[in-house]
Structures are given as C-alpha cells and as structure tokens.
Amino acid sequence: MILLQLGVDGLLLGAVYALFSSGLTLIWGMMNVVNFAHGDFVMVAMYVAFFAFTLLGVGPIVFVPLAAITLFGLGVLVYVALVRHVMRGPMLAQIISTFGLALFLRYAALWLFSANFVSLPDTLVGGVYDLGGLRLSASHLLAGATALVLTLGMHLLLTRTDLGSRMLAVSEDRTAAALVGIRPDPMQALAWGIGAASTGVAGALIALFFYVSPEVGNSFTLLAFVTVCLGGFGSVPGALLAGLAIGVIQSISAYFLGPATKDVAVYALFVLLLWVRPQGLLGRA
C-alpha cells in the first residue's frame, strides 16, 4: 500500500515536473538557447494564478488559461526584446542574459509582491479521494492529468502539424528554412511563446498545492534542467519520461533511504545514464 501511494505520488509529481520542463526543452530544441529564467517563469505564472484568485475571485478554469496567455506574451516579449539580439552574440552572452532575466523577474517580484509566502486556499480544487487507503488529492490529479495531456499535445503539435514542421525546420537550419519561404523570426518567437505558455500552465497548476514566493523558482530551475538533460534536449516525450522517472525515484528513495538521499539517487542515475546515453533517454545522438 505504502509503495503504491509512493508510486502514485511520485508519478503525479513527475507529471508536473514533465510539464514545466517541456517548455524548457522546446526552447532549447528550437533555439539552442538555455533559458535560465525558466524557474522564474514558473514563479510568474504562480503569481498570475494567485492574483487572479484573490483579486478577481476566479478558479483554475480561468486562471490556468490566463497564466498560459500571460506567459505566452512574456515568452514572445523576451524573444523579441532580448533573445533575438543576444543570439547574434557569443554563447556566453546568451547564458548571462537569461540569467540576468531570471534575477530581474525574481527581484521585481520581491519588490512588487514582498517576500512573504502566500498560497491559494486548499479548498479551491476540492478534496481528497480515498481509494481503499490510497489517497489522491484532486489538485494533484488535475495537475498531473493536465500535464500529461498538454505534454502529449505539444509533442503532436511538433511532429504532426505543418506549424510544427516549420518550427522544426527553422531549428534545423535557419537559412535553409528561410530559403524555402519560412520566416524564422515569427517561428522562433512562437517557440518561445509556446514554451513559456506551457510553463505558465505548469506554474498555475503547481500553485494549487504549493506555496508562492518570489524565490520559489529556485526550487524548480535545477529540476527542469535535470529533467531536460535526462530526457534528451529538445525531446518532449523524453522530458515526460524523465519527469515521471525523477518523481518516482525521489518519492521512493526519500521514503526508504531518507529525504537527504533523494537527490543523491536522482543525480546518481543521471550520471549513470549520461555515461551510457550522453544524448539523454530520447534525445537525438
């Protein structure tokens, strides 16, 4: 029973890891840009959810799409105003600029919203289901299920649609894509928008069961990077698989070996996997 509960908890958590990591993997896959502000995008989305609830009194049906739209806008803005320009510079400039963006978002939040921890009321997405001793909270279930659907949806968008092909074409070879009539800038802005929007959905869903503070992104950034590396850079299904695996490993090792060991277990696996498959689980070699 305990093992089942741990497994289910791990899977639900892993699905959420997968969702916020898929945004990162999309931006990486499309642009070869590492977005260090990713965790802070999650933070912005959490505040969107929090303020939509406290100021407008709306529930997740409204604030999840609202967070997606806001973050889509933020993603496009970041591409147009920042990334497009630093792409021409050296690799280091890209790293520093998104890192700077992360600090900017974090300290802007600290200034605007204060350092206090806030959280959405637990009653927002009602209750806990008890299936013969197995306890599932509605908010975790909602987050997990949405994460699965969206991650798969994003994968289908990339592999099965004309738009997805065009985006992939730009990421393969910007010049060649331009030669066959695909304008690269709108495609890359779109990739940032979609990547950020999925992060927005993840953030708004996480806000249902997690605290919100300006520093909360810290907890997520590193996890997102590990998930993306483990799954294979640019691979959405890889991120899903890796997210689920990390969730389950953390949950089970924390219970049996103690919480201090859960990250050791994850990173040990990470190193082992990179040894055998440096491109990640489903990455292209």
């Binding site: 305990i2 908890d9 958590l13 907890s219 997520f220 924390a254 219970y255 919480p259 859960k262």
Partner: peptide
C-alpha cells in the same frame, strides 16, 4: 528522527514515514 533539506519540492515521503 527525520532530517530533510528545506529547499525540497515535495515532502510526502516524509509524511508517509510518520503516518506509518
């Protein structure tokens, strides 16, 4: 005695340990 890192994202395994 359960020792954990304050920056974690999930504490359900620890709570399950207590529950047990």
């Amino acid at each position: 005695t359960i020792s954990y890192s304050a920056n974690g994202t999930d504490v359900s395994p620890q709570v399950l340990q207590l529950k047990n």
